[in-house]
């Protein structure tokens, strides 16, 4: 066990865990930030997607010891009230069915939009290929990503 000082959603948080503990479980079990989901544990489904210094990271395979001073952003850190442009676009297109994978989809979409406000279909597919949705909401996700720019 060791102490880790983390910067999560702009706040300093301290946890006392084994350094091998994946960021996912630190967020969920220790910091009560359960918006980031467990889906596969092997970085194959994207449900656990967060940003580390603005880059997409699968938190289920990212040991907490590798975070250091980097800034972690989770779905809870996008906005106080659901007004992040990508969140609003998700509402506009009424994207979710079960909703479980959507936090991960949104985090991948936010990283894409930050780099490229008007992505093509192909760019969207490439950026979100690692996020599985068993309900099959891919077409709505694509539409939401395309309209996110108008809310920013």
């Amino acid at each position: 066990m060791a102490n880790f000082n983390l910067n999560v959603n702009g706040e300093n948080r301290q946890v006392d865990v084994d350094g091998s503990t994946p960021l996912l479980w630190v967020l969920r079990d220790h910091l009560n930030l359960v918006g980031t989901k467990y889906g596969c544990g092997i970085a194959q489904c994207g449900s656990c997607t967060v940003h580390v210094d603005g880059k997409v990271v699968r938190s289920c395979t990212t040991p907490v010891s590798t975070i250091g001073d980097s800034k972690v952003t989770t779905i809870e850190g996008l906005s106080e009230d659901g007004t992040h442009p990508v969140q609003v676009a998700w509402l506009e297109h009424d994207v979710p069915q079960c909703g479980y994978c959507q936090a991960g989809q949104i985090m991948s979409a936010v990283a894409l939009i930050n780099e490229n406000k008007n992505p093509t279909d192909e760019q969207i597919a490439n950026a979100l290929q690692g996020n599985i949705c068993r309900c099959g909401t891919y077409i709505r996700i694509k539409a939401a990503v395309k309209s996110a720019a108008k809310y920013s």
Binding site: L33, K37, I75, L78, G82, W90, P96, Q102
Partner: peptide, 18 residues
């Protein structure tokens, strides 16, 4: 619209695993 849409987009605890 889905009555839980905003909570889902905000990552609120909704699921059993949460």
């Amino acid at each position: 619209r889905n009555v839980d849409g905003l909570k889902i987009a905000m990552g609120k605890p909704l699921f059993g695993l949460d």
